[in-house]
Every structure is written in structure tokens, then in C-alpha cells.
């Protein structure tokens, strides 16, 4: 026992990587389980044309306990008056709402509702008071977006929380800025427009719709073009590089020295 403690001290990097791997595996497992439950829910709903009234019913059944029967907000959840359909689409279709469990912040997971159901709830919320609408196809069209401009705007406005490569980062007291890989264009757009949770709002006067499309194009460029240098080690920067060189670089070379100096039989 005591022997092990001593080794922990000396092999710190190894230990942290072990924990890291364990943590990632655990996180992956949890999200898979949650995802399965959620998708079972979603598939049981019939995909038909739904109206704002259906949206209201869905809202009363699933959201009103925290956001209030008239979406006016309660101590458990903020008011949704004026948040707009864009906010509903983002929160519901990234699976952040309804909250899986209370914690520092809502986490992305498999959505609990179908797109139609979400749209219906969005219509209901939008009818309460005007707010940002779900972006149209033209707005999200990145065919002639400027990737370089998107990168620059992203670095100035987004990278401090989400990391330059969109790998995510820590905020205060357990909150975090999520990883931005493989996110639907509409959801990126809606997040900027509505400022979900602690993310600031980036209205069209701050980042214009064209610039928002540029950012989406940049993020999708990163998704589609893996690092030219090979595996990117999570794009976490020097920390993962340092762990890698200690564990696999120097570890591998130490293994070689053992082979090199072992007596042949």
C-alpha cells in the first residue's frame, strides 16, 4: 500500500493519464446510457405536423415545472418570455433541455424530442413575445463564406472559452465551454444569437450574420480537415503534448534501454 503511494508521487504524469482515460471512458459510458434512454423516448412520438398548441401542451408537460406554467420563470428556471424559437431549438435539439440533472450547467446529450416537437414548442414560445427566430437556410449557407475571416472572428470572440481549435475549456466553478466539433450549423448560429446559459449573446450588431456564417464555415473546416501533422492529441495544447512525450516518448525509449542492456541468452 505504502509502496504504491510512493510510486504515485514519482509517476504523476502516468497516473493523471490513467485517470484521464478512465474519466473519458466513464463519461463515454454514461453518455451512451443516457443517449439510449433518450432515443427510446424520441422514437415513441409520432412525427406529424404539430402546431403551437401542441407546443404548449409539450411545454406544460415537460418544461413548466421549472420555467412556470406561463413560461414566466421560477426559482428553478429562467423566464422564457422573449427568448425566441432559436433558443428553444438550440436547448432542446442539443439535448440540454430538459435538464438531465441539476449541475453547474446543462450538458449536451441526445435530444429528448423530435425536430417537429421542438419546432412546435418554439412556435409557442415565440408567440408569447418576439425573440430571435430559428436561422433560415440562406443564413446558414456557407458556400461563399470566408473561412479566414471566420477564423479571425472566432479567435477574437470565441477562442478564449472554447479554445482556438474548438476543443472547449474551463469556466468558473465547474462550468465549462463545450467542445465545438461536429456541431450542427443551426445550433452554432443559435448559440451565438441567444447566448445559452453563461455564454454571452452575440447579436447581429456584434457579429453580423455573414460573420456568423464565416465562423460556422471555419468550425466545419476544422471538422473536415484533420490536423496535417497527424493525430492531434485532442488539440489541448502543450499539456497533452507533455504527457504524451513523457509516457509514450520517454516511456518507449526507456523500454528500448531495457532491451538494449538486457543480457542475451
Amino acid at each position: 500500500m505504502a509502496h504504491r503511494s510512493k510510486k504515485t508521487g514519482r509517476r504523476h504524469p502516468l497516473a493523471s493519464l490513467g485517470l484521464l482515460v478512465l474519466g473519458l471512458v466513464a463519461a463515454g459510458g454514461v453518455s451512451t446510457v443516457v443517449g439510449q434512454v433518450a432515443s427510446a423516448d424520441a422514437s415513441s412520438q409520432a412525427p406529424t405536423q404539430l402546431t403551437a398548441d401542441d407546443g404548449e401542451q409539450l411545454f406544460q408537460a415537460n418544461c413548466a415545472s421549472c420555467h412556470g406554467v406561463n413560461a414566466e420563470g421560477t426559482p428553478e428556471g429562467p423566464s422564457l418570455i422573449g427568448v425566441g424559437a432559436a433558443s428553444v431549438d438550440f436547448q432542446v435539439m442539443t439535448g440540454r433541455m430538459p435538464l438531465a440533472f441539476s449541475g453547474p450547467q446543462g450538458m449536451a446529450r441526445t435530444p429528448q424530442f423530435s425536430q417537429e416537437q421542438s419546432d412546435a414548442m418554439g412556435e409557442y414560445i415565440a408567440a408569447l413575445a418576439p425573440g430571435p427566430d430559428v436561422p433560415s437556410e440562406e443564413v446558414l449557407d456557407t458556400a461563399d463564406a470566408n473561412v479566414a475571416n471566420g477564423g479571425e472572428i472566432f479567435r477574437i470572440n470565441c477562442a478564449m472559452c472554447h479554445n482556438v481549435a474548438g476543443a472547449g475549456g474551463a469556466l468558473t466553478e465547474g462550468k465549462f465551454a463545450p467542445d465545438l466539433h461536429d456541431i450542427d450549423a443551426a445550433h452554432i448560429y443559435e448559440a451565438m444569437l441567444t447566448g445559452p446559459q453563461n455564454m454571452p449573446v452575440f447579436n447581429d450588431d456584434n457579429i453580423s450574420p455573414e460573420e456568423k456564417a464565416d465562423i460556422i464555415a471555419y468550425l466545419h473546416f476544422l471538422d473536415e480537415n484533420p490536423s496535417v501533422g497527424g493525430f492531434d492529441l485532442g488539440s489541448l495544447g502543450p499539456v497533452s503534448e507533455g504527457l504524451f512525450i513523457w509516457i509514450f516518448g520517454l516511456g518507449g525509449i526507456v523500454a528500448i534501454t531495457v532491451w538494449l542492456t538486457a543480457k542475451p541468452n
Binding site: 479571425e152 479567435r155 481549435a165 476543443a167 497527424g230 492531434d232 488539440s235 502543450p238 507533455g242
Partner: peptide, 28 residues
Amino acid sequence: ATFTINPIWNYGPYDPSPVSAGTQPDWY
């Protein structure tokens, strides 16, 4: 040949205003 190190193209040129989450020095 197989692992990226310091992908400077992600970081962009130096500008005193932006910063990246996870700004760390090399391990040493």
C-alpha cells in the same frame, strides 16, 4: 510523422486581444 505538435495554424497570428482556453507553456 504521426502526431501533431504545436499546430501553430490553429492559434493564429499573435494579437494582444484574443487568447485561447488552455493557454499553457510547454511541459518544462
